[in-house]
């Protein structure tokens, strides 16, 4: 029984990295991303207000509840600044809920009492997503993914929590990792998404991959 989200770890010394990556810290597992980035020697800061985006070279939108994060982003005036941040070419990575906020098409989630409509999303990446498609929490799972697409290959320990499913990807989208036939990690230009949660593991390879994207942007 090992818990992978201890307290926030210390900011690395400034000389270890000039790259600064923000983590949207409205709700969810943001601390886990910050810790992973700091272990890689990257400056990482929580983002709760629009003005906190200014010093950033890249941004992670973490897992959590996508409806909650979307509403909070809207309430605190973050939706348009986030779209501008991405439009300016700054790399962004969404895990789980973050992927749902970034996807252009999440279809409808028909529920008794009317269809869900969610205006509080960024809708910038050309993917079609079915939210919570893998089922409820009892269906949440771990699986080892073939990771040949990463600079250091082998397998990647993926943790899927009430995970969304990528149903279709646009022409400009490059699949990165698969679970069987399904795309579970993908990149479109400077936008990256994973349906699973590398921040819940001790494996820093996807964070390293994203940091390289930020450094090369």
């Amino acid at each position: 029984m090992t818990f992978h989200a201890p307290n926030l770890i210390e900011e690395p010394q400034p000389e270890t990295g000039t790259t600064t990556v923000g983590v949207l810290a409205l709700q969810g597992a943001f601390l886990e991303h910050i810790n992973m980035l700091r272990r890689l020697g990257v400056r990482a800061t929580p983002v709760r207000k629009p003005e906190e985006l200014a010093p950033l070279d890249g941004l992670i939108i973490p897992g959590g509840e996508s409806t909650t994060i979307g509403k909070l982003a809207d309430r605190w005036g973050l939706i348009e600044p986030l779209r501008a941040f991405i439009a300016a070419g700054k790399p962004v990575w969404g895990t789980g809920a973050g992927l749902i906020l970034l996807a252009k098409d999440i279809g409808h989630t028909p529920k008794k009492g009317g269809a869900h409509v969610e205006p509080n999303r960024l809708a910038v990446m050309d993917i079609k997503v079915d939210r919570n498609a893998f089922g409820r929490q009892v269906d949440s799972f771990e699986a080892d993914l073939p990771a040949d697409a990463l600079p250091v290959g082998g397998t990647f320990p993926a943790v899927f929590i009430r995970a969304p499913r990528i149903e279709a990807v646009g022409a400009g989208v490059t699949p990165l990792l698969h679970l069987g036939d399904e795309v579970v990690a993908a990149v479109e230009g400077h936008i990256m998404v994973t349906t699973f949660h590398p921040e819940l593991t001790d494996d820093p390879r996807l964070h390293q991959f994203f940091v390289e994207m930020v450094r090369n942007s």
């Binding site: 029984m1 992978h4 709700q27 959590g64 809920a97 929490q137 699986a143 819940l200």
Partner: peptide
């Protein structure tokens, strides 16, 4: 265990709670 994937592990149990944090 189901093929390559495993449900009900300690990590996915604690993991959902981690997704609820700050909420």
């Amino acid at each position: 265990q189901n093929g390559n994937s495993q449900t009900g592990t300690w990590r996915v149990k604690v993991g959902l709670a981690q997704m609820l944090k700050g909420g």
